[in-house]
């Protein structure tokens, strides 16, 4: 395992600029999650680190060595591809064993069998080992693809939305499992997702991407509590942060504040200004209120057992809102 550094990395394809001036570091044994909407450049970042693309500017270091001109094999990275990329003519077993059969490693065959079985167990696919790679469901292919990375002991694991096509339960299981493996074996892992729950639960550091730029990098807690822009604030938190023009609650924000951000925990129900309940959603463990406040739509959470009804009017007030300027940057 090793640490990885990106320094001022840029990459463009023809006239689209996929990555612009990206700098961040992944410490040894850390679990870093890149979060961003589709087209933000997440896959491109992974491919640059893996050596499948060459960067136009900047440098990539693994363990202190600049690897810009290294081949993927020399970089010794393991990658889970977004589109699975299994070897279609091989069985699941042979797919999993493929990286171990690399002549560089000279793994003995019984060691290979042991590792393959172990990984298949973790990913709940031991009964599929003799299937051909094409005779699997999408979710099974995705797990084989994760397994093909897990059998290795690379400098860094790169995972591109590895849990995206699994059902909710399996996703939750594997999320825990991956995190456990990573923590136990002190593996360095760079993980791409647009699922904020995955980001919040697994990451030791989160990087938020916007159109090829890294807009904020920090611990999940830090990013959640101190987003530096409305863009970052909107990426984390369920339901999403509510953005309103400032001044509606009579709060006195800092100089230049033009918007306030209210997460459900920033909205106190029971006193303050009138809001109209448009809809009540019971989600079991929580209840969501969709409100009309002045001209604006708000969503907030309340105790699951409260019995507010559609059409009622309630009072709300803002508690410690986040302030943003007109361009969306955080002020305080």
């Amino acid at each position: 395992m090793a640490e990885v550094q990106l320094k001022n990395v840029s990459k463009s394809f023809a006239d689209t600029s996929a990555i612009t001036d990206m700098t961040f570091g992944i410490d040894d044994g850390e679990f870093v999650v890149l979060l961003g909407p589709t087209g933000a450049g997440k896959t491109t970042t992974l491919r640059l680190i893996a050596g499948l693309e060459n960067c136009d500017a900047g440098s990539i270091e693994i363990d202190g060595t600049v690897v810009n001109h290294y081949t993927p094999a020399q970089r010794n990275v393991a990658m889970v591809f977004q589109q699975y990329s299994l070897y279609p003519h091989l069985s699941v077993r042979d797919n999993l064993a493929f990286p171990l059969r690399s002549p560089i490693l000279k793994t003995p065959e019984d060691e290979i069998t042991r590792k393959v079985n172990e990984v298949a167990e973790i990913l709940h696919i031991p009964n599929k080992l003799d299937n051909k790679a094409t005779e699997l469901s999408g979710g099974e292919m995705q797990r084989v693809s994760i397994g093909r990375a897990l059998v290795r002991d690379p400098a860094i694991f790169l995972m591109d939305e590895p849990l995206s096509s699994l059902d909710a339960k399996l996703r939750a299981d594997l999320r825990v499992e991956l995190k456990r493996l990573q923590a136990e074996m002190k593996k360095t892992l760079l993980y791409v997702t647009h699922d904020q729950i995955e980001a919040m639960t697994m990451a030791s550091q989160i990087g938020v991407l916007d159109e090829g730029r890294l807009v904020q990098f920090g611990t999940p807690r830090d990013i959640y509590q101190n987003p530096n822009s409305t863009y970052v604030a909107a990426r984390l938190g369920q339901p999403r942060i509510n953005l309103l023009p400032s001044g509606l609650f009579g709060e006195n924000g800092p100089q230049g504040a033009s918007q306030i951000g209210l997460r459900p925990e920033n909205i106190e129900v029971g006193k303050g200004r009138d809001a109209h309940i448009l809809r009540v959603e019971h989600l079991g463990d929580q209840t969501r209120l969709h409100l009309k406040f002045v001209e604006h739509d708000l969503v907030t959470l309340i105790d699951a057992h409260s019995d507010y009804q559609e059409g009622e009017t309630i009072q709300i007030s803002a508690v410690d809102p986040l302030f943003f300027d007109a361009a969306g940057s955080r002020i305080s």
């Binding site: 993927p72 591809f81 279609p88 093909r148």
Partner: peptide, 16 residues
């Protein structure tokens, strides 16, 4: 192409 990319990552030589 992606199959060859996966093989590159899995450190298979061109010959293999």
């Amino acid at each position: 192409d992606y199959i060859y990319e996966a093989a590159e990552i899995d450190r298979a030589s061109k010959w293999r």
